[in-house]
Structure formats: structure tokens, C-alpha cells
Nucleic acid binder design. Structure first.
Lengths: 189, 189
DNA sequence: CATCGTTGTGTACCCTCGTACACATGGGAT
DNA sequence: ATCCCATGTGTACGAGGGTACACAACGATG
């Protein structure tokens, strides 16, 4: 019993959890595997995170921050003078071009919310984050549409292994933004 | 040792697997849980499906057929006289309005392909199925786009719990179909 | 300095799982 | 009729998991 008073212990466990999920998927996540990866005893992980869901929530929240920073750093997103479609397409490109393992990891955690109610609120946070940034530039219905399309595009890239084509994405996003002929769109719920 | 020569044994196991995934998620799927659900001995499940991936593949393939039948039954999809966006929106509506547990199940299996290479080809089959039906009505790039958008919309509905708004979906799909001004779109890979 | 509560550690219990394997059974080929 | 082999069954083993819990260490409080 040597190491004591390690204030970053909790953080290190989260980091380790992210690495484990990245390497072995959510299925490979256990108190023990995280403990080994973080080089802490088993009891330590169960102390900080009573359940695996708690740990997943923390991991997802932290993983989200990666994308959030990307979004926050792109100031031209909210600049009314830029081409929104191009901005979003570039954003996706930047994200997908980064460390692919990290991307898959973030998406796996994100999608895990489908079956794990505990993760839902965190996944929703992510959506709202981006929504807010877009709110000043389009109506709510279009914002939702853009999010859906971006999700779908990412999914397609990750599932089929196809390369991300920024020009194609830009064109599509543009099509969604340009409302064709003033058709009425139901408001977002 | 009573029951013998049960030619539908394999099929019953697949059905049971689908029920198990529906009830407890993929994480709850095991040779044992399936065996219990199908009311067959443990050895029987391991005999027919050496690995759980094998079983998942069979389950996903069968689950896909549900949607495939929906698509196949909608002949107006390929009729050039109909509004494609409306047809697709209605198709989604029909699917999402059905048994919600089944929908979540199909999507969970579909998304599981992200991390399980064994499922990739099966997920791809699904995509191609729908693609073929759409091929006669739009160009490949738009087809891909429609699939991405539909995926994104479903994801949004399932993840956020928001209600599916068919009018909204119809409008969006329409925006994607109407190519704005002859912009060049990179071909699908 | 004594005490207390938070934080960290080691271990043991019991469960479930995948896998392996020996054995049973009966249809079909010869 | 006999044999073979695909199919089906029962059981045991070892790995790994969540959880619980007693104990250790140490900062804070007085």
C-alpha cells in the first residue's frame, strides 16, 4: 500500500476507460480491465464508479468534449458571412480525418445510448451543444435536419468504410439548407 | 433425452436470439440465455452456432428481412409517377410506427456492425437492397444521400425519443432529391 | 495530539460465460 | 441389416466478472 492521496486518480480511470473502449469496445469494458489499464487496484475503480454505467457516462462526456472543442474552435461557424454547408462539411472532414480510433470510440459511446438510458442525457447534451451553435443561422427544423444528415453521413462512413467525400457532403448539406419553395415545416418538438 | 430430429431447431434458436436481444440487448445475449429462451439444451446452441457472432449474423439477416419486406411491398417506390420523397417518408413512418421493440432491435443489430466485422457484410446487404430499389429513380450520389438521411432521422427518433414527423421527413428528403443548380457531385465510391 | 471520515487497497465469494468433450440417437447409404 | 455420421445432449472446467467488505492510510478538525 504505497500510493496514497492521488487526486487525479478518478481522471486517470476515465482516461483508461476510454482507451479500453477504444481497444476492445464497450463489450470489453469491465472494472477489472479498466483497473489494469489505469494501473490501479480493482477496488479503486469500484470505489470511484459504483457501476459501469457511471463510468460510461463519464467517458462519453469526456469523449464528447473532443468534438465540442472542434466545434467551439471553428468560429466561422457562427459568422453569418460564411457558407454554412461548407463549414459543416469541413468540420466533419476535420473530425473524421483525426484519429480514427477516437472517432469510432466516440460514435460507439454515442450509439450505446440507444440501449442504455443512463447515457441518453449525455448524448442529448452533445446534440444540444451543436444545435445552439447553429441556431443563429437556420430555423430549428433545419438544424435538426442538419444534425440528422451529419449523423447519417458519419454512420455511413464508419459502417461501410467508404471514404468521406467533403464535396459531396457540402452539396448535400447545402441542399438541406436551401429551402426549396417555402414549404411549411413542422416545428421541432 | 426425448426430443430428437427437430429440423426447425436452428430456426427456433434464431427466433429466440432475436427475442433475447429485444429484451436484454446484445449484451444480454449468450449461448445460455438463447438456449433457455428457445427451450433447448446448451449444447444445442453451441452446435448450431459455434460463436455468438454466427448467431448474431443469422439474427441480423432475419431482422433485416422485416424491413426488406416492407420495402418490397411498397411497389409505388419504383413507380416513376409517385413523389419519391413522400414514398420514403411514408416508408419510414410505417416502419417506425410498427412494433417499437422490433425497430430498436433491428437498429441495435445494425449498429453493432460498427464493432463487429462479421456483421458488416450483412449490414451492407441491407443498404444495397434499398439502394437497388432507388437506383432507377435517382443518381447514385443522391441514393447514398437519401440512405444517410434516413439513417440519421431514425437515429434521432430512437436516440432522443422524439416523435417521427412524416411531413418534416418528406420535406427534407425532397430537398435532398431536388438538385439545386446542377452542382457536380462526386460519384459514389 | 487524538479522533474521524474520506479515500484507497486487498481479497474472497458466487455467478455467468465460452468451450470442450464424451456420449446418445436415428436417418440414410450400402 | 449394418454401419456411419450428422445431429442432439449432459456435464464439467477454467476464466473472468460484479460485488461486498474488512482493513490501511492520511488530511482535516478540534
Amino acid at each position: 500500500m504505497v500510493r496514497r492521496y492521488d487526486p487525479e486518480r478518478r481522471q486517470r480511470i476515465i482516461d483508461a476507460a476510454i482507451r479500453v473502449v477504444g481497444a476492445k469496445g464497450i463489450a470489453g469494458l469491465s472494472h477489472r480491465s479498466v483497473a489494469a489499464e489505469a494501473d490501479v487496484p480493482l477496488g479503486s475503480t469500484t470505489y470511484h464508479f459504483k457501476t459501469l454505467d457511471d463510468l460510461l457516462v463519464a467517458a462519453l462526456r469526456q469523449a464528447n468534449e473532443g468534438f465540442a472543442e472542434l466545434v467551439a474552435g471553428r468560429e466561422s461557424l457562427t459568422d453569418p458571412g460564411t457558407d454554412l454547408a461548407a463549414e459543416l462539411a469541413a468540420l466533419l472532414g476535420e473530425w473524421l480525418a483525426g484519429d480514427r480510433a477516437g472517432v469510432e470510440l466516440e460514435y460507439e459511446l454515442y450509439l450505446a445510448a440507444l440501449r442504455r438510458p443512463a447515457l441518453r442525457p449525455v448524448a442529448a447534451e452533445w446534440t444540444e451543444n451543436v444545435s445552439e451553435r447553429l441556431a443563429s443561422r437556420t430555423d430549428p427544423a433545419t438544424t435538426r435536419a442538419l444534425l440528422a444528415l451529419m449523423d447519417g453521413i458519419c454512420l455511413q462512413v464508419l459502417l461501410t468504410g467508404a471514404a468521406y467525400e467533403e464535396g459531396w457532403a457540402r452539396e448535400l448539406l447545402g441542399r438541406v439548407i436551401r429551402t426549396g419553395g417555402g414549404a411549411t415545416i413542422p416545428p421541432a418538438t
